Simulated assay, not measured.
Amino acid sequence: MFKSISAAAATLAISVACLVLLPAGQRVEAQSAGMFVNAVDLDIVPAERDAFLAAIKENGAASVKEPGCKRFDIINLNSDPNHVFLYEVYDNEAALKAHRETDHFKKYAATTAKMVAKREARQMTVIASNAK
């Protein structure tokens, strides 16, 4: 009985030591299980739709090449061709912040600033991802 208690205590001590000894950034990742989602609803000025779509496609293609970006979907609402939904998945919030500092994002933001009539962004954490 004392051997199993000692083994459990040793395992716990080693686990805590490993967690404490990790650099701060790795410690946060080790504790957080979900990916970080940026979900954005955009209403596009109708006359700017084609130019906006070209700019967001370019930004999305460049975004998925970033180390922390896992997914960048550009979705159009069937009932409203001027409503676009962005579904962006990152390793963590820091990866989203790094994305916003890239040259391609800054170019997209400057190019489309007057093309967007309304923008609503929501940040989320993935609890479970079910895909085929």
Rank of each mutant, 00 (worst) to 15 (best):
85 F>W: 08
55 A>R: 00
50 D>G: 14
8 A>Q: 14
62 A>L: 08
30 A>T: 11
106 K>V: 00
122 R>W: 13
109 A>L: 07
122 R>V: 15
113 A>Y: 06
34 G>Y: 09
59 N>P: 02
42 L>P: 04
75 I>K: 09
70 K>V: 10
131 A>F: 08
23 P>K: 12
68 G>V: 01
125 T>P: 00
115 M>T: 05
47 A>F: 04
63 S>G: 05
6 S>P: 04
67 P>L: 11
11 T>V: 13
128 A>C: 11
61 A>E: 08
121 A>E: 07
105 F>I: 00
83 H>Q: 09
128 A>Y: 09
97 K>H: 13
82 N>T: 06
82 N>R: 08
121 A>S: 14
14 I>N: 05
50 D>T: 12
84 V>K: 05
122 R>N: 14
1 M>G: 11
91 D>P: 03
38 N>S: 15
45 V>E: 03
64 V>G: 03
87 Y>F: 06
97 K>M: 10
34 G>Q: 12
33 A>F: 13
115 M>W: 03
3 K>W: 09
118 K>M: 05
23 P>V: 11
102 T>D: 10
71 R>P: 02
120 E>W: 09
107 K>E: 03
118 K>Y: 04
24 A>F: 11
102 T>I: 08
112 T>E: 00
116 V>G: 04
2 F>W: 12
118 K>N: 09
106 K>H: 01
129 S>R: 15
69 C>F: 07
34 G>K: 06
41 D>R: 15
116 V>R: 06
117 A>E: 15
12 L>M: 15
52 F>S: 04
39 A>R: 08
18 C>N: 12
102 T>V: 08
75 I>M: 14
109 A>R: 04
71 R>W: 08
88 E>L: 04
60 G>I: 01
48 E>K: 05
23 P>D: 11
100 R>H: 03
68 G>K: 03
126 V>Q: 01
78 N>D: 15
26 Q>W: 12
38 N>Y: 04
118 K>W: 05
11 T>E: 13
35 M>H: 01
2 F>D: 14
109 A>N: 10
18 C>H: 09
47 A>K: 13
49 R>P: 05
42 L>N: 02
44 I>S: 08
70 K>H: 15
108 Y>Q: 01
